[in-house]
């Protein structure tokens, strides 16, 4: 297990430089493959056969009305929710395989939550070191250095010793992002990261996310922030009633959607 994380660490660093030089998303190198994923809660079918391929270094934005299944799909990607049927691959390994260790999967796939979920009893720094120490087995000093550099990355080096209750919503969410980044994930998942925040606080979070886009991080983002979708996404997937209605680059989907359903949705968002 530790071997694997070592290698992902290495490729992750390289990948950043690599992706910014080459044109992103044109070559086909699917990092995440989702095949016919289905999920039901009782009689309600939330995901009705989702197929999706996300390339390394790409930013995929999932949009759709509430109840469309986008959050459920995101949670299936790191097995916080288990699929009923279908397969999800990260690179060559199937993460939905029954013998795949969900804890190992989750180390490679970072997640940022709508309601942030910082560990309330720990400082910003310790929120980050906890996983590094207990899961990755880093020494106290290594973990601390890593945490401080991640806090610096999200612009919060001066808040390392603050507790969550002493931080603003935007600062908390940035710590949440730093906590996920510290595990060196191959993919970052964002579940409506700004919807619990005031508009002015959203901006600082969106800036951090834009920074990650520039670094070439592979990201899957559920959001209603169309500014981010326009500026950062390589592909936008529109879901409704548990199915993919339409997928395409932002310009095409915004300006010239093929389906009437998609058009209506984007119009309703614009009016908000």
């Amino acid at each position: 297990m530790s071997d694997r994380t070592e290698t992902t660490d290495g490729t992750g660093r390289e990948r950043g430089a690599d992706a910014s030089s080459s044109a992103r998303g044109t070559e086909t190198d699917p990092l995440l493959r989702i095949e016919d994923v289905r999920k039901s809660y009782g009689d309600e079918e939330v995901l009705r056969g989702i197929d999706l391929e996300i390339d390394r270094g790409d930013v995929e934005v999932l949009v759709g009305p509430s109840g469309s299944g986008k959050s459920t799909l995101l949670r299936c990607l790191n097995r916080l929710t288990e699929v009923d049927s279908g397969h999800i691959y990260l690179g060559d390994t199937e993460i939905t395989a029954s013998d795949a260790d969900p804890n190992a999967v989750r180390q490679q796939i970072g997640m940022v939550f709508q309601d942030i979920n910082l560990f309330a009893h720990l400082t910003a720094r310790k929120n980050i070191t906890l996983g590094l120490r207990k899961v990755r087995g880093l020494s106290k000093n290594e973990a601390r250095q890593r945490a401080d550099s991640e806090l610096d990355r999200v612009g919060l080096a001066d808040q390392a010793d603050s507790y969550p209750a002493q931080l603003s919503g935007g600062q908390k969410q940035r710590v949440g992002i730093a906590r996920a980044l510290a595990m060196d994930p191959e993919v970052m998942l964002f579940d409506e990261p700004t919807s619990a925040l005031d508009p002015e606080l959203s901006n600082e979070v969106l800036e951090v996310m834009q920074g990650l886009v520039a670094e070439g991080m592979t990201m899957v983002v559920v959001t209603h922030e169309m500014r981010f979708a326009r500026g950062g996404a390589d592909e936008i997937t529109f879901l409704a009633e548990g199915e993919i209605v339409e997928r395409g680059p932002p310009e095409r989907l915004f300006e010239n959607p093929e389906r009437e359903r998609t058009k209506r949705f984007f119009e309703s968002i614009r009016h908000e």
Partner: peptide, 23 residues
Amino acid sequence: IDEGQMEAARSIGMSRLEAIRHV
């Protein structure tokens, strides 16, 4: 304790027992 605390702990790769113990 909010369920999100458990989910956040699981999302960085902690086992259920580790999450209960440390978070």
